[in-house]
Design a protein around this nucleic acid. Structure first.
Lengths: 363, 363
DNA sequence: CAGTTTTGCTAAACTGTTTTAGCAGATCGA
DNA sequence: TCGATCTGCTAAAACAGTTTAGCAAAACTG
């Protein structure tokens, strides 16, 4: 029953819109126009050498003129690759508004763009994990791989990827309980640099605000803090360590407790910039001065650290680079790289105005 | 030539992995096992009432047992809906690390999850626009719609969506030059609240740090600032207004210029929190006190504003809610809603410690 | 009890690619 | 000069769903 009207050439997509109602050009349209099979057009577009130069050029021009765009749903269905990766963020209310994650995601997106990948966002909320969505996004062909940010030891689901053979990369952390690909910052060296610096400035009683003992990277920092103190002949006092929950508020409270239990503290080392900033806030609130009375050091070097008062001495983490590297390794993994990925990127100290020589403490 | 081995039931996906090598269950597998056609299984899954209750239940159980997951590439190819939307961010180096965008994206993702949508990330870099990628992600069936964040008047590409009939939503801004769907905060009312408050505190010479005159929302604030001054019988002095480029550094420099040109200023109103924080930093640097000498007000109410010293008085923008509403309206648009979207969400003043009664100025 | 409607399902077409098997005709080697 | 190889292309299957037309049989209607 089909009339001859269908024969009219599709040289121009008939209307600019409305979109999605059969207005786009398909391989079939190009093939019909060029009087070749769809296989030929497909092979031209994929640079298959079995097509003659003449035919190839002729079809390339036609593709150009007709404004053909391959439908990537069909491509993915056929090729079994979606060229999409997911970034899985923890279920924190302000995860997206966090400068730490932002920096990593920025690196991931830039690298993904260069490699022809798209980036999808997921949040690992309890429902998401319970419904096995983290595996389903693979089974349902949403993604070829995932990058896991902000993980901790309780995130058992990270192991599921390995078991199911789904390419996954843990960013800026690692796990003791099982083996998993990861790319992270050198937390040990970062902490060593802080401790060397503070000890050099004459600090002996150094408070440490940590957070989340269930994060391997965070534990590494505390362990290094302790061993560097011992190395310097100082027995770390348990009251010097408090939990700051990774937040400004937590950092402020932790600083308060530390200074209450040992007023002779001369420096406070925050496990991240936010807690260090909270600590500074609290120190000032207690009528003390930074850095004259108390030196404060952070860890992250968020853009913001240079704009608090006083500006914050901190460890620079190459978060953007970690994101890029993670993305790159993940794609290698997707394409069959067999060896495990265990990459560690260097960190360095940035000295600003929140640190000074230790005040002389009455002993 | 096919042997009878294929007949063995696929009740359990043969191995947990390796993934992606023909290990998943398809509609065809379920149909074979249930001894019905694929159409029947498809109809059961889509709740088509033309299937008997008995068959439906039987198949549902089988689907459950076999762990069938519909392949969404095939679904999308057939249905012409991807159930994916893109968030387009401006090409700023730290766009993802920005708390403002983070808050909006958080709202978008939460709402998207509830509506069965996935969120893709894109950055509107020059190349991206030049290659018409913003339209191509539609043509190539990556997405059903886009949400545009951080737009300004120079972003002519926003108009392309309308022209091409691609569902798009501008978030927290609008355009004079053309008509486009948008959901935004009430900038006018926010500014009015700030000005009412400062005038009530006795401030008469009020500096304003603005940014990007090519952003409609920002212009609205400056216009309102001027008209509120006039309303109070004060002729706005051009030297009171400076550009702060939306950054802390810019805010600091702008504050410096304003105070240089008119030292009798008693309050500074920053067009966003970052610039206000930069301004505070600079005011203190100049040996003045906040709020005793100079009151400072921000605009955004980023989480961080409560943790600077002194804590920042600011306008709370419902960014999370704007993200949610934008996502919701976009999906309506995708499904054919004809009326344009022009939504404005209310803002409110949050008074903290960076503002006080105006100091008495020698006239 | 013939004729119509309803019910429950199937076959086949359709979405738009990639890929493999293979067909002619030309080229080559012995 | 005959078989083998190469060249350039096509037909068809595969990917995994949705949707429409339509077929029997059962259930109604008059």
């Amino acid at each position: 029953m089909r009339t001859e009207q269908a024969i009219q050439s599709k040289l121009k997509p008939e209307k600019p819109g409305p979109f999605g109602r059969g207005s786009t050009v398909s391989l079939r349209d190009v093939a019909r126009e060029a009087k070749v099979s769809v296989a030929t057009v497909s092979m031209v577009l994929n640079g298959n050498p079995r097509i003659s130069r003449a035919t190839s050029l002729r079809i390339q021009r036609l593709v150009e003129r007709m404004g053909y765009q391959p439908n990537r749903l069909a491509q993915s269905l056929s090729s079994r690759y979606t060229n999409v990766v997911a970034v899985i963020l923890p279920a924190l209310r302000h995860a997206f508004a966090d400068a730490y994650f932002g920096e990593v995601i920025s690196g991931i997106c830039d690298k993904a763009g260069k490699m022809g990948y798209k980036v999808m966002l997921e949040q690992a909320k309890p429902d998401f994990i319970r419904e096995k969505q983290h595996i389903r996004i693979f089974e349902r062909r949403y993604v070829d791989g995932v990058l896991c940010l902000g993980t901790n030891d309780r995130h058992k689901w990270v192991e599921d990827f390995g078991v199911s053979g789904c390419p996954a990369m843990v960013i800026d952390n690692s796990f003791d309980a099982f083996s998993v690909d990861h790319v992270m910052c050198d937390y040990r060296s970062g902490c060593e640099q802080v401790m060397n610096y503070l000890l050099q400035l004459g600090h002996r009683r150094i408070g440490m605000i940590t957070a989340a003992p269930d994060i391997k990277a965070a534990r590494t920092v505390v362990d290094t803090y302790r061993s560097k103190l011992r190395e310097a002949g100082i027995e770390p006092n348990p009251v010097w360590i408090e939990d700051g929950k990774f937040t400004e508020e937590g950092g402020a409270q932790a600083a308060h407790k530390i200074l209450e239990k040992d007023p002779q503290i001369t420096a406070i080392f925050g496990g991240n910039d936010k807690m260090a900033i909270g600590a500074m806030y609290q120190v000032v609130n207690l009528g003390l001065k930074v850095p004259e009375d108390i030196s404060v050091v952070g860890f992250d070097d968020l853009r913001h650290a240079a704009f608090v008062n006083p500006t914050l001495t901190t460890i620079h983490l190459p978060l953007y680079e970690v994101g890029m590297a993670g993305m790159e390794r993940l794609v290698e993994r997707i394409h069959g790289r067999p060896e495990p990925v265990r990459e560690v990127l260097p960190t360095h100290l940035v000295v600003r105005n929140s640190t000074a020589l230790a005040r002389t403490v009455s002993t």
